[in-house]
């Protein structure tokens, strides 16, 4: 039987994300590379006590970061505002100013959401390690800072390195431009960011894509993320119900 990882709709794609799951959310923080419709589907699905892992914790609403003028942002905040998130792992969790708190910062201050801040490169490498079967690695990043407190460190060549552990997830919600039915992916521009390392780090990776093509529709020389890392693909409509256009 031919392999086809296509899922019919977004609700079905996220239906088995259970309470307490660790969920990675792709992208950098702006509109590009973010799985907007998977996030909305997870909000509607309603699972709770989630740990979400991403570069930001949803900063688009107060900052406009990477969003076109006049388009209502959809990001991690839709899950946080819905009370589904109890822990965030991110490098850039909040807006640039205390006077413009995002939904996460409000929840953090209220003691409802726990935060683990991870340097951006360490965050990506912890995912890469998880996907590559590496339990932990030494990095010079954060040596001598409060983000290294409580972690093992070791000198190599006269320089201090910090031991960082692999970061696994139950699910990764990622975004790509094109998939074939086997799950091979191509991204667009700067919208790769965390999507490839997350795809490899999660037990189940669900890719939201603009188009799905038959095998052979993607040049194998140009595959960005090989389909081995992808369990489900779901195509997003160019225009949502009600005429809302996504960026």
């Amino acid at each position: 039987m031919p392999i086809d990882k296509t899922v019919n709709n977004f609700a079905e794609a996220v239906s088995d994300i259970s309470d307490g799951s660790v969920v990675m959310i792709g992208g950098f923080g702006g509109a590009g590379g973010m799985p907007h419709l998977l996030m909305l589907a997870l909000r509607d699905q309603g699972s709770r006590n989630l740990t979400i892992v991403g570069n930001t914790a949803g900063i688009a609403a107060p900052t406009g970061f990477g969003w076109p003028e006049g388009v209502e942002p959809i990001d991690h905040a839709v899950l946080i505002e819905n009370g589904q998130v109890t822990k965030v792992i991110a490098s850039f969790p909040v807006s640039g100013s205390v006077s413009r708190p995002n939904a996460f910062e409000t929840g953090f201050r209220a003691g409802e959401i726990e935060l683990e801040v991870v340097p951006q490169g360490t965050l990506a490498e912890r995912m890469r390690a998880a996907g590559a079967g590496i339990a932990a690695f030494y990095t010079p990043t954060a040596a001598g800072t409060m983000l290294a407190e409580g972690k093992e460190s070791r000198m190599f060549g006269g320089r201090e390195y910090v031991l960082e552990e692999a970061l696994h997830a139950d699910f990764a919600l990622i975004r790509a431009r094109t998939a074939d039915t086997l799950g091979n992916l191509i991204y667009k521009g700067t919208s790769r960011t965390f999507n490839p390392p997350m795809a490899a780090a999660a037990r189940v990776t669900i890719a939201e894509v603009d188009e799905i093509v038959e095998p052979g529709g993607i040049d194998p020389e140009r595959v960005d993320t090989p389909g081995i890392y992808i369990q489900r693909i779901v195509v997003r409509p160019p225009v949502l119900e009600g005429g809302l256009e996504l960026p």
């Binding site: 850039f92 953090f108 954060a142 983000l147």
Partner: peptide, 8 residues
């Protein structure tokens, strides 16, 4: 609370 981003 702060944003470390890629600075470190």
């Amino acid at each position: 609370v702060g944003n470390v981003g890629g600075a470190m």
